[in-house]
Design a protein around this nucleic acid. Structure first.
Lengths: 392, 392
DNA sequence: ACTATTAAGTACGAGACTCGAATTAAAGTC
DNA sequence: GACTTTAATTCGAGTCTCGTACTTAATAGT
């Protein structure tokens, strides 16, 4: 059988408490402010148990009571809500032309989001320091920090196996981040995975348990969510879709081979198709292209071709993964329906069977900080899964 | 966030016991016979707790003590092993040209395996009845039955969305099976998923947590294992890789489109490539081809071409999923290295980066009952996950 | 204004479970 | 034969959840 590591999330009764506490926290995140009675019904726990758990969370500063909501019959409940003032998560992104940081709180609200045009680890550390300085306080605790990189990150969430266009050795990024901010646990992850996570928690795929995120810049990356969890693969390299043999089989890719998907739908291929130059950043470039498309039929035709090849790859990925929603990020987002519409048509042609429902194709709405936001959200993973206890 | 259903595997202390009991059972399955002390070390539970759990399992007939193993210093431990005489799982497969059944016990041993050339639901029920008659007994309990179908089965594990070549409405198969055998819980699943499960528990991918199974008959199907769990997709249709646009883009597929992968590497495409006729069953046909290849260079060249296109699709799937091991079943198994070797070469050429390790390509060794075996194994899922309690 | 009704939250005792330490048991070693 | 070593059980303490009964706080009705 698949030899599972002897994982022990529970074992003793205090582990059981952790588990149930996490269950209450998840319910609060999902429902928003809720009374103890509502939490009991949602989690299936006894009212008494919920009462004890809520008290502990309140003492820890994780939740707070709100004013009661009158109007109904009977004694009005006293709603409890996640507090954003105590526990924070820091998400960082180091990319080829910018660094970004997002501070998220337990309630899912963004405290800070900042992006700077830069590309070195030192720039990232500077940003992390300044962002945290603006958030820290005597009653603030940083539950973790996560660094998103456009790189192949191993399944250990620490070491980088391959980072083209990035002068980050990566192995020590985690260590350097933890010297700059007081985060107990610092992890390193792939940027597309982070962005997928962000879309599923805050963006166009909110609440969707099977989603696929595609980011388009020079390369194409994917983040896969299967039943709410990121698909990482054996070594941690799942989602490296840029070099799949899809699209124009003659197109020459930066990797030296031909026929890679990103040689057909990557930023440079798109620009070649519409006959426009590359500007400062992929996003600015794509916005310029979208503007021009309004008046230029040739540009629209070029985007039509890109959209078709995009749909081809999406058909492939849909057949394999059967996602409910596919979110398009990176330079695809500004182009929106200009590429999504032809992609949908191709998808309809290519879909495996009549029964298979076409996944929803949506542009990302999270902007350039998507990956950093997802990274910040990942910091709360241990909290909502019950492996960390905030009341300790 | 991905709105998780408020799943309650634990909650109270008796749920905790179930969880820990399942942990002990998993350890026994993984380690084989083990003393209470060894189980305590492996599971992380206290010795006292393991003692109580083992007593309960022994009373339920799930485990039994073996003769002690002397030789070491100190008091010899009394090893405990999973008993195969009490709890059984029934796996059934209904395919286009045969029906198959496997009875598996808690210890992972196969009690019966039988295949008959047939293709109707009635034939399957006959087989189920006769197989169970040969196994049932006063002290025997059937923990469940699982039916594997070459069909799109919805995520509810009951209803069939699409079953080409199969006159099974499917929605009532589960009900009819539970009338024939005394299985509490009857599930319906996709055959490739079942076979993947079988390979991961008993076959060429044993102990591997990230594996991919590919079966080749007339169509091509995949089963995906991500961290030991089957990837099902949003509707339950993940792994439908047969109609991905891969290989010869001009090849006409049975679905009416062109360029589908199975139009390049399906059974009929392979036969066309080697210029040989189809025999009774895919396996017999493939064996004949393998025989001929020993002496016929033209056949070898044809298989070379099929292997190349196989490698192309595998490269795609590897980029997306990053499996550690890929198992080739169906008609690919008899052909073995004749197609695997060229597939490996293509894979090496196409692999995304130098860092990415090539997954191991292995032929299946489980034979025609692979899917039925995996179906039987799935019956024990609730037992090893702790949602069912054998000691109740 | 007063009572009945409805629902939320709490107090409390019972029950289940795990854990660590102490104890008993069964070998081999000197 | 005494000692050592390791296995397994016993026992008491501690933690947790649960159901019931009770208290509290609002509205609805008379």
């Amino acid at each position: 059988m698949p030899s599972a590591p002897a994982h022990r999330p529970t074992a003793g009764t205090e582990g059981l408490r952790r588990e149930n506490t996490a269950s209450v926290l998840r319910a609060l995140r999902r429902l928003g402010p809720a009374t103890r009675a509502e939490l009991a019904k949602d989690t299936g726990l006894a009212k008494a148990t919920v009462g004890v758990i809520v008290s502990a969370l309140e003492a820890a500063g994780a939740v707070a009571e709100q004013g009661s909501r009158p109007g109904a019959r009977g004694r009005p409940g006293r709603p409890v809500a996640l507090r954003g003032e105590r526990f924070l998560g820091l998400g960082l992104e180091l990319n080829v032309d910018y660094v970004a940081a997002v501070v998220l709180d337990l309630a899912g609200r963004v405290h800070v989001r900042e992006t700077r045009p830069a590309s070195s680890v030192d720039d990232l550390l500077d940003l992390a320091r300044s962002v945290w300085d603006g958030c820290s306080g005597p009653d603030r605790a940083l539950v973790g920090a996560t660094v998103a990189l456009p790189a192949l990150v191993r399944a250990d969430n620490r070491t980088v196996a391959w980072a083209p266009n990035l002068e980050a050795h990566g192995d020590d990024i985690a260590a350097r981040v933890s010297q700059v901010v007081p985060a107990g646990d610092v992890r390193v992850t792939n940027d597309a995975n982070c962005a997928a996570y962000a879309e599923a928690h805050h963006g166009a795929a909110r609440g969707v348990r099977h989603a696929l995120y595609l980011t388009g810049t020079v390369g194409i990356g994917a983040g896969i969510l299967q039943d709410g969890e990121l698909v990482r693969g054996g070594a941690g390299f799942a989602g490296e879709v840029g070099h799949m043999p899809v699209g124009d089989s003659a197109a020459v890719c930066g990797c030296g081979r031909r026929g890679c998907w990103e040689a057909s739908v990557g930023l440079k291929a798109m620009l070649a198709a519409v006959g426009m130059p590359e500007l400062d950043t992929p996003l600015v470039t794509a916005e310029a292209v979208a503007d021009r498309a309004a008046s230029d039929g040739g540009v629209r035709a070029g985007l039509e071709r890109v959209g078709h090849d995009l749909g081809l790859g999406i058909a492939m990925l849909s057949s394999v993964l059967d996602p409910t929603v596919i979110v398009l990020g990176g330079y695809f987002a500004p182009l929106g329906e200009l590429v999504l519409e032809p992609a949908r048509r191709t998808l309809d042609e290519r879909l495996a069977s009549q029964v298979q429902v076409r996944p929803a194709l949506r542009p990302s709405t999270l902007g350039i900080e998507a990956a950093a936001l997802g990274a910040a959200e990942q910091c709360f993973d241990p909290v909502f899964s019950g492996s960390t206890d905030l009341t300790a």
